[in-house]
């Protein structure tokens, strides 16, 4: 563990901060990607689940003092449970209606946290350092990498295929024997779980959380990361989260005008690349080509054409 600490000490704290921001953004954006990109259910309330995770995690550290790993897991599970509970009634809705519902739910969560004594109302909570021998940056990136691996696995499994079928055509998906209500709720719960874990990391990294930090703008922030990279694309989401989490720092010299660039960038994207920068790119094939091997698709095509 000492070795890890010394590695952290070697990196410039400013750079480290940006890296941690990126890691947290990846976890959050991947969660939304499961709900909106893979399952096609537009959610404008992702920050609500992040705040549920953040406050749960902060309270666990303050009141119970559990180890950080267990703490994050519990925060994620609570966010997922609330996600599933709220998903059950609202996931019958589609498109704009669902989006408005999630938006309303996010506002409710914010107002509840602003009025609860246990979350210190509008003053917000000061979060003590996490109980963990591993330094925060490693924790954040460990969780980010686990999330990436999990979502990659999920997307290409039987479960993920059912989610993508629901995104593409609900009626056809149901006619294939897919229980769309159940899968939508599960997808919503997974997305909320990742949001909750991301919220827990956020709370312990900033050491202070306030309900107003998790408003509509935060949800839109996370949504933009995913849209920039490409709906449904995991590499795209990682890329979008990295760019947009780092953008405020690189655009700092423009002071208050940086939001202009940020907004302009999204408009530009929607016009010229509506699928996102990396939407629809098959990375397995690209890597295989780069190292001089035939893509798996060509290989199997050949095999079946012979037989």
């Amino acid at each position: 563990m000492g070795a890890l600490q010394s590695i952290v000490a070697m990196v410039d704290p400013y750079v480290l901060q940006i890296l941690v921001n990126i890691g947290i953004a990846i976890v959050l954006a991947l969660g939304l990607n499961v709900i909106t990109g893979i399952t096609g259910q537009l959610s404008l309330g992702h920050a609500a689940f992040m705040s549920i995770g953040a406050f749960t995690s902060a309270l666990i550290t303050i009141k119970l003092g559990l180890p950080f790993g267990l703490n994050l897991l519990l925060s994620g599970i609570i966010a997922a449970a609330i996600g599933a509970a709220i998903g059950y009634p609202i996931l019958r809705l589609t498109g704009d209606y669902l989006a408005i519902c999630t938006l309303g739910f996010a506002e409710i969560v914010k107002v509840v946290f602003l009025n609860l004594d246990i979350t210190n109302r509008a003053l917000g909570l000061t979060v003590p350092p996490p109980k963990s021998p591993i330094p925060m940056p490693f924790y954040v990136w460990g969780v980010a990498i686990l999330s990436i691996v999990f979502v990659c696995f999920m997307k290409e499994s039987r479960f993920g295929r059912a989610l993508k079928a629901i995104r593409d055509d609900e009626i056809a998906a149901e006619a294939m024997g897919i229980n769309i209500t159940r899968y939508k709720i599960q997808s919503f719960a997974i997305g909320s779980f990742l949001a909750g874990v991301g919220g827990g990391l956020y709370a312990h990294f900033l050491n202070y959380i306030n309900p107003s930090d998790f408003g509509f703008l935060k949800s839109v922030d996370i949504l933009s990361m995913m849209v920039l990279g490409g709906l449904g694309s995991i590499a795209g989401t990682v890329f979008g989260a990295s760019v947009l989490a780092a953008a405020p720092e690189f655009l700092r010299f423009m002071a208050q005008y940086r939001m202009l660039v940020y907004g302009g960038l999204l408009v530009f994207m929607m016009v010229f690349r509506p699928n996102g920068l990396l939407g629809g790119v098959n990375f397995t094939d690209l890597v295989l080509r780069a190292i001089g091997r035939k893509p798996a698709t060509a290989e199997i095509n050949e095999r079946h054409n012979k037989g």
């Binding site: 039987r158 993920g160 295929r161 993508k164 593409d168 294939m176």
Partner: peptide, 26 residues
């Protein structure tokens, strides 16, 4: 059809009820 997915994935989705591994399988 699930238009933006491969022909094979379309049929694999059709085979959904033939499989058993769910989220745990992921």
């Amino acid at each position: 059809l699930f238009a933006e997915q491969s022909v094979l994935d379309n049929v694999l989705i059709g085979a959904h009820t033939r499989g058993t591994w769910d989220l745990t399988g992921s």
